[in-house]
Amino acid sequence: MLDTLKTLCYLSGVSGAEDEVRDYILERVMPHADELFSDAMGNLIVFKKGAKTPERRLMLCAHMDEVGLIVTGYTDDGYLRFDCVGGIDRRVLIGKRVYAGADRLDGVIGIKAYHLVDRDEEERVPKVDELYIDIGCTDRQQAERTVCLGERCVFYDSIVEFGDGFLKAKAIDDRVGCAAMVKLIESELPCDAYFAFTTQEEVGTRGAKTAAYGVRPDVTLVLEGTTATDVPDIGEGKRICSAGDGVVIPFMDGGTLYDRQLYAVLTRIADENGIKHQTKRRIAGGTDAAAVQRSRAGVRTAAIACAVRNIHSPASVGKISEFEDLLRLARLFMEELARGDSD
């Protein structure tokens, strides 16, 4: 699971340009799938038979895309102008390394020296359209030849295990969900399932909308990365969940009121199997569940997630044991469904 996650985090897959991620997943799951197809949105949908065929069609769902940058222009002296794809707090961009374009050229988002910053400037964070990427080009023509408009840039990908069992990488949201689904597909399953590796979640759960329409599930389990709020200074009332406090089983977030029975089932089986879990203590964020739940005539939808610090930044951090627990809980949920007693 951890090796798969690390490999997936390394790949580039900014929303709308998920090709690398999809190609890798395809290669991994191809030998194990009973059926697979890609739709017009670029979703990869895999069907695999299990020990049982449950009455209700099950879909698991994780998104392949990550937040990143898109090249929008050039300066005369050869720097790239860019915009954010997906929700990025621009404070995490300054002074960071990126890989620019399809060729993964080294680039940095610079900022003028502190010595040249006046007091007023120090009081505000530059807007995204004031920032630029330095790829070592010296004029516009050279930059234009090097990286095309619309090419995506991803955060630098140092992947580090550190501290008491933590992993730092970009794109843990939601390669953790993708990794868990790949591992499930590679194993014997307790019941038949569709696995939707979706696109464009970060720009508004776009891929999941068509994936759910195409699969027509009765029940869906979304696997996600969610915002951890562990920094000391945050007020208690603003804490959502913590990396290290267990797998997150949400009853509600900004986009979805999750199916109450499925929520109860998930918490029960987590308890029964000694899987540490928590719920979101504050209503924030959203997942593909919002698109899936209201697909066609409606889908009973639940989610499990890993709490990720600094989500949507170059330095997202999660607890390694919780990645494993996410996978375990997803499998237990499938077993429960196979037994047909999850009503």
Binding site: R91, V231, K238, V317
Partner: peptide, 26 residues
Amino acid sequence: RMLPACEMRVLTPEPLYGVVDVMPVH
């Protein structure tokens, strides 16, 4: 202003890896 999400090397005898954590926007 360049510190949020910045990687750090903590120079203990066996150096430790660290990152500057960010208060989430919400």
